[in-house]
């Protein structure tokens, strides 16, 4: 083939540009740490990275959701544990009232039961992050409109009704929440209930156990005829057996609450396992993503050196290629 001055220059120029492009590409890979800069550089890798990033972000999202839910469950567990402890205390008081040594202290025990009742109500009104834990989906004050005789917008409230023979104190606890599920998505496809229904924990429609505590309070504070009990008024045999029955019911109530605590513990363990599993999966996915999108530094640095050497030599050759022609030797 006939070689012309221009074809030499064109070939040289093209090779020079190609080399400069390759040096620039390796330089960019090393300086940005990314193996590709444009979508068209590696279409398959780009899409793989997009999909991996989506999965990683989704895993992180649900991992965070579950971690946060575990905190809520932990608070629920503490509130129920405190509640169970107090019921246990109420049961102890009920049993204490049965001993002859305490027969003159029944009014005092009654007052202690009343205080315990107030503590139980406070614990049933426990909240986490501004939402009531045992009110179903009526989690805020704003969502509760008190119906008289209730006056507050709290889920559990001790109200005063007109006294009668069945309830000489006229006290009752009203539950103004509901027993609906609060559910979270624990993955893109699965959901799970995270709240404890008041009905499940406290019996009846959500306030039965409080009625039992009030019943104990009434028995300790009032005589069978409705008059206020004094230290000189011991328990009758009917009252005594009623209190024994209540103590048994408190025991049953504690079992129910402990059962709910157990469910929460199981749920927490499962969530923890999922969080750990998601974390491990993300570590693996990030490694795969890194292989796709991050620069292989040793390889890129080696390539860069190789291309720079080639560029140096090409430039040297260029300086010789165009310095001499026959005209240099003509006089």
């Amino acid at each position: 083939m006939r070689i012309t001055t221009n074809s030499q220059a064109t070939t040289y120029q093209r090779n020079l540009f190609d080399l400069q492009e390759r040096v620039d590409a390796e330089n960019t890979r090393v300086s940005t740490g990314k193996s590709y800069q444009r979508l068209s550089d590696a279409p398959k890798a780009v899409v793989d990275v997009q999909r991996l990033t989506t999965i990683i972000n989704t895993n992180s999202l649900y991992s965070n959701s579950l971690a946060e839910t575990r905190e809520e469950l932990s608070n629920t567990e503490s509130a129920l544990q405190n509640f169970a402890d107090n019921i246990s205390e109420v049961r102890r008081m009920a049993l204490e009232s049965q001993t002859t040594a305490n027969s003159d202290k029944l009014p005092v025990l009654g007052k202690q039961v009343y205080q315990m009742l107030q503590d139980l109500i406070n614990q049933a009104n426990a909240n986490y992050g501004g939402k009531y834990l045992f009110a179903g989906t009526k989690t805020t004050d704003a969502s509760i409109t008190p119906t008289p005789p209730a006056v507050t917008s709290r889920p559990f409230e001790l109200v005063q009704n007109a006294p009668d023979s069945a309830n000489p104190s006229g006290l009752s606890v009203v539950f103004q929440g509901n027993n609906q599920d609060r559910i979270i998505n624990r993955s893109l496809t699965d959901a799970e209930r995270v709240n404890v229904h008041a009905a499940d924990a406290f019996g009846g429609s959500g306030s039965e156990i409080f009625s039992k505590v009030i019943e104990l309070y009434n028995t300790l504070t009032f005589r069978a005829d409705g008059a206020t009990r004094t230290s000189a008024d011991p328990l009758t045999s009917d009252e005594s057996s009623k209190i024994q029955d209540l103590a048994r019911q408190f025991s049953d109530g504690m079992n129910v609450i402990n059962n709910e605590i157990g469910k929460i513990g199981y749920r927490q363990s499962r969530f923890e396992a999922i969080v750990q599993q998601l974390g491990e999966e993300n570590t693996r996915l990030k490694e795969i993503r890194s292989q796709q999108e991050d620069t292989n530094m040793p390889e890129s640095l080696l390539n860069l050196k190789r291309e720079q050497n080639a560029l140096d030599y090409t430039l040297k050759i260029g300086s010789q290629l165009f310095t001499q022609s026959l005209f240099d030797f003509l006089r």
């Binding site: 939402k131 989906t137 009526k138 989690t139 805020t140 969502s143 509901n178 609060r182 559910i183 979270i184």
Partner: peptide, 9 residues
Amino acid sequence: GAGLPGDNT
């Protein structure tokens, strides 16, 4: 539903 702030359906 109405008045169910904790409902996240």
